[in-house]
């Protein structure tokens, strides 16, 4: 793991993030709204920046942004693909499933990256993250194809993790 960024970087990252979020909330370029946004996000980031981010601005390199966008695409495609999968199962009168909880080992170290990975796994139907202990994800799988770590990693986590590693490690 990399060492944490400086306080100032974290603070400004939080501030700008919250301000952008404020602008999305208001969807207005009125000067009063902008000033209020700067002010309010400043106050909130004052007492939340310590835990909101660990990376600060170091996450915003062009390469990482590019991978992030790529991740989004991969994610959406997986999402749609697997949703039709679930639709197939639910409509099928026989319910062709073979569920079980399996272990997936992840190479990620950052908490936030693990959260994104776990959320992605959860959102792609067929798999559901039950818990994370250290770097082991316990995943409930609708149609288990194998219980050894290699199969599970390749089937469940690999698509996402390949990209996430490039962003967060």
């Amino acid at each position: 793991m990399k060492k944490e960024s400086s306080k100032i970087s974290k603070f400004f990252y939080t501030w700008i993030f919250l301000f952008v979020l404020w602008m999305a909330f208001t969807t207005s370029l009125d000067i009063a709204e902008l000033i209020a946004g700067v002010f309010i996000s400043f106050i909130i980031s004052l007492f939340t920046y310590k835990f909101f981010t660990t990376t600060g601005f170091s996450i915003l390199t062009p390469k990482k942004i590019f991978y992030f966008i790529k991740y989004l695409f991969v994610f959406i495609i997986e999402l749609i693909k697997a949703n039709f999968d679930v639709a197939r199962i639910v409509i099928n009168p026989k319910l062709p499933i073979n569920p079980g909880i399996v272990e997936v080992e992840s190479k990620l170290t950052s908490d936030f990256a693990k959260m994104i990975l776990a959320n992605s796994i959860t959102l792609t139907p067929g798999t559901l993250t039950v818990d994370i202990i250290d770097n082991k994800l316990f995943v409930h799988w609708l149609y288990v194809k194998g219980t050894d770590t290699e199969t599970t990693y390749n089937e469940i986590a690999k698509t996402f993790e390949d990209i996430l590693i490039k962003i967060y490690e």
Binding site: T14, L18, W22, I40, I44, T48, M115, A118, D131
Partner: peptide, 24 residues
């Protein structure tokens, strides 16, 4: 779980901001 804790960390400032947005 770690996930909930991480999620709470990330979502907390956003929820506060949302609350501030609503009452402003």
């Amino acid at each position: 779980s770690t996930l909930v804790r991480t999620g709470a960390k990330v979502l907390f400032p956003m929820i506060i901001l949302l609350g501030a947005y609503v009452f402003v």
